[in-house]
């Protein structure tokens, strides 16, 4: 029984981790309609910066947030401005996919060039210390991630609902043409949104770095699961991504224990295909647009 509860708890924590990685991805897709295949590499970049700051300056890894989040915001904003925006008018979205895939390839290999193939371990500063609840154990860092994911989801939802800028972001996603008529500079909103999405994954990077070894391909490891999470939650839905992440976290943990740890990914991706067949709009899929008259 304890084992089972421990597995469920591990799944929950893993869910929090997937959530915090996926939120930026779904935000960017929901508003700009671009799948950022370089999302994982943004995470990887953030983790390397965290590692550098922690090891070079001897600071607590969480202190890196002051640097990592703004740096990633700028990275995201630049990606939108210099790479995606010139391609927004492209005939189909393939070109944009190619663009972010190219960016991903370039970033992975840039990291290899700079940091080599060695694994970088961020000093945990106590974040790997276990917290014990009776017979159940968790890592402090995991709990922090879970809490941060909840705060991030609620914060973003409040921002999108109750600020004029947040509403403008939603307006652009729902009806770009009408948003222009309101005097919203759509390109600014896109740059801001991409920046925000990247900043979210920056926060994730700071929180994850002390728990996972950083390497040039760590992004690919996380981002594939993030894709499944985002589709399960409904492309573009932030609460959906959170809930999807929790589900995938549990599936991952349970199948890892009961089926075999080397087959976890096969189970998760099999589930992915099942979602596409049964409920492609996901748990919180976007509703149909009312543009039939135009």
């Amino acid at each position: 029984m304890t084992t089972f509860l421990q597995i469920l708890l591990n799944g929950l924590m893993l869910g929090g981790l997937f959530a915090i990685v996926s939120i930026g991805l779904t935000l960017i897709f929901g508003i700009i309609k671009v799948v950022n295949f370089a999302h994982g590499e943004f995470l990887m970049g953030g983790m390397f910066i965290t590692w550098l700051i922690t090891t070079q300056m001897g600071l607590h890894p969480y202190a890196a947030v002051i640097v990592v989040v703004p740096v990633l915001f700028v990275m995201g904003a630049l990606t939108q401005r210099l790479l995606i925006q010139p391609l927004m008018s492209a005939r189909d979205d393939h070109i944009q996919i190619f663009a972010t895939v190219g960016l991903s390839t370039a970033l992975i290999n840039l990291a290899l060039l700079i940091f080599g193939a060695d694994i970088a371990n961020t000093p945990p500063h106590g974040l790997r210390a276990p917290l014990e609840f009776g017979e159940l154990r968790l890592l402090t860092g995991q709990v922090m991630i879970f809490g941060a994911a909840i705060v991030l989801v609620i914060g973003l939802e409040l921002f999108l609902k109750y600020t004029q800028t947040g509403r403008a972001i939603r307006a652009v996603a729902q009806n770009r043409g009408a948003a222009e008529l309101m005097g919203i500079n759509v390109n600014h909103i896109y740059v801001l949104t991409f920046g925000l999405g990247a900043a979210c994954v920056g926060l994730a990077a700071v929180l994850i770095a002390p728990l996972y070894p950083t390497s040039s391909n760590i992004g690919t490891y996380f981002v594939l699961t993030a894709f499944v999470v985002v589709v399960l939650g409904g492309l573009g839905s932030i609460p959906g991504a959170f809930l999807g992440a929790l589900i995938i976290g549990e599936v991952d943990a349970l199948s890892g224990y009961y089926i075999g740890s080397d087959l976890r990914e096969a189970v998760v991706f099999g589930l992915f295909l099942l979602i596409l067949i049964l409920r492609p709009s996901g748990l919180f899929g976007a509703r149909q647009n009312l543009s039939h008259l135009s």
């Binding site: 509403r167 307006a171 729902q174 009806n175 008529l181």
Partner: peptide
């Protein structure tokens, strides 16, 4: 604009504030 072009998933109030 022609055809109303509201923001479909926003409330009326949010539409007006936009």
């Amino acid at each position: 604009p022609e055809g109303r072009q509201l923001f479909p998933d926003m409330t009326v109030r949010e539409n007006l504030l936009m």
